[in-house]
Computed example of a mutant assay.
Amino acid sequence: MLAVPPLIWRYRRLILLLAFAGVLVALYRVSGLHEDFSLDYLRNELQDNRLRGLLLFVGLFALGNLLHIPGLLFLAAAVLALGKLWGGLITYGAAVFSCGFTFLIVRSIGGNGLRLLNNRLTRAVFSHLDQRPASSVFLLRHAFITSPTLNYSLALSGIGFAPYMLGTLLGLPIPLLLCCLLFDRLGNVLLG
Rank of each mutant, 00 (worst) to 15 (best):
R50C: 14
G53A: 00
G71M: 01
R10M: 13
F74H: 15
G83F: 14
G93D: 13
L54P: 03
N118E: 10
L67D: 05
G100L: 12
F183D: 05
H128T: 09
A77W: 05
W86A: 14
D184F: 12
L14Y: 03
T91S: 00
Y164P: 11
A124I: 13
R141D: 11
L18C: 03
R13A: 06
L178P: 12
D48G: 10
H142V: 12
H128F: 07
F183G: 05
A26F: 11
C179E: 03
V96I: 14
I109A: 00
P163F: 12
F138N: 00
L140D: 13
L114V: 02
C99W: 07
G171D: 13
A155L: 12
H68S: 14
L54E: 03
S31Y: 08
W86G: 15
S31V: 07
P5V: 04
R43A: 08
Y28M: 09
R12I: 07
Y41I: 06
Y41E: 06
P173L: 03
F57N: 08
S38A: 11
L46Y: 09
T91K: 01
A143L: 15
G187N: 08
L56D: 03
L140R: 13
R120W: 12
F61D: 05
R10L: 10
W86K: 15
L63E: 10
I90T: 06
L66G: 03
S157V: 09
L67R: 07
P6M: 01
V137G: 12
A155F: 10
I145F: 12
V4F: 10
L17T: 02
Y28V: 11
L63W: 12
A21G: 06
C180F: 00
A95D: 00
F144S: 11
V25D: 12
L85C: 02
L55P: 10
L150Q: 15
A81G: 10
G88H: 08
S135H: 14
N151P: 05
V4C: 08
P70I: 15
L116W: 01
L82P: 12
N119T: 11
